[in-house]
């Protein structure tokens, strides 16, 4: 008995008719800790945006199981760090799903914010203006907000960029804690050693799914080389993607190794071809 959290079905995402993620099929089971890996421009952030619902698919669909509470930490935040807010106010934004527009913040909410700040090592920073935080402290504060959000599905887009090793270690501990609590966590990561060490499962993207499965197997030298060959293939005058390409895609999907889920991936694609 499986509980799909996210289902991709022949999902194609992109901008101006050029795909950034091409024909992705698969299921992310509830409770999965998945690393999304790939070079710059391989479609990782695009995929995250589609899962949150901020980007409409060009083809196929991406469904998140109904009632799932999502927390999303984008790579390029539009957060205004010059805004006159204190750390506790930034973290308390995470109460939105619980309290909404009008719900009064209760004493236990304040306690929750305090606990979250403690968990990320920012106790005592409650009243600090956010424009005085360092990059690492700021990232910790954003993780505290995710903690407060208490989400079922957590999407982190390159959360370790420009973050020192101590902070990375602390934040990874939090991610493992979320995984342990049965939450579904997708993390875009560039540090392949970190992926092999921490993540049970990885999806390697190169504007199309290269491989999806056990992290150590997925990140083999051979797969990484394949990903690099696919990469940077943007062509202004690229031909339109025709249905017969599906045959080729089915063959490619059949390569997807990994856990039990990939059987269903292949099955789905073959049905699509038939």
């Amino acid at each position: 008995m499986t509980h799909p959290c996210i289902t991709f079905s022949d999902l194609t995402l992109g901008y101006d008719s050029h795909p950034a993620v091409h024909h992705l099929d698969g299921v992310v089971e509830t409770g999965t800790l998945l690393a999304v890996v790939g070079g710059n421009g391989s479609g990782k952030s695009t995929l995250m945006k589609a899962i949150v619902g901020m980007l409409r698919p060009m083809g196929g669909y991406c469904t998140v199981s109904p009632g799932t509470r999502i927390a999303y930490l984008p790579q390029q935040s539009e957060l205004d760090r010059s805004f006159p807010a204190q750390v506790r106010e930034l973290v308390a934004l995470g109460l939105w799903p619980k309290r909404g527009l009008l719900g009064r913040h209760r004493p236990e909410d304040k306690e929750l914010v305090g606990k979250a700040l403690m968990a990320v090592g920012l106790t005592g920073f409650e009243k600090r203006p956010i424009d005085t935080l360092s990059g690492g402290q700021f990232q910790r504060a954003l993780f505290a907000r995710v903690l407060v959000q208490d989400a079922d599905l957590i999407l982190l887009d390159e959360p370790f960029n420009a973050i020192d090793t101590k902070t990375v270690t602390d934040l990874v501990t939090l991610i493992q804690r979320w995984h342990g609590e049965g939450r579904t966590v997708l993390v875009v990561v560039h540090d392949l050693d970190l992926v092999r060490e921490i993540f049970p499962e990885a999806l390697l993207l190169a504007q199309r799914p290269v491989v999806w499965g056990d992290a150590r197997e997925a990140l083999s030298a051979e797969n990484l080389l394949r990903a690099r060959q696919f990469q940077e293939s943007w062509d202004e005058a690229a031909p339109w993607c025709e249905p017969q390409d599906d045959v080729e895609r089915a063959a490619r999907s059949a390569d997807l190794p990994g856990s039990g889920r990939s059987d269903s991936v292949v099955g789905r694609t073959q049905r699509g071809v038939a």
Binding site: V52, A71, Y72, S77, E78, L79
Partner: peptide, 14 residues
């Protein structure tokens, strides 16, 4: 305040 401070966040929760 949420829209000023972090518009993407507000879009992701509301």
């Amino acid at each position: 305040i949420a829209e000023c401070l972090d518009p993407l966040f507000l879009r992701s929760v509301s």
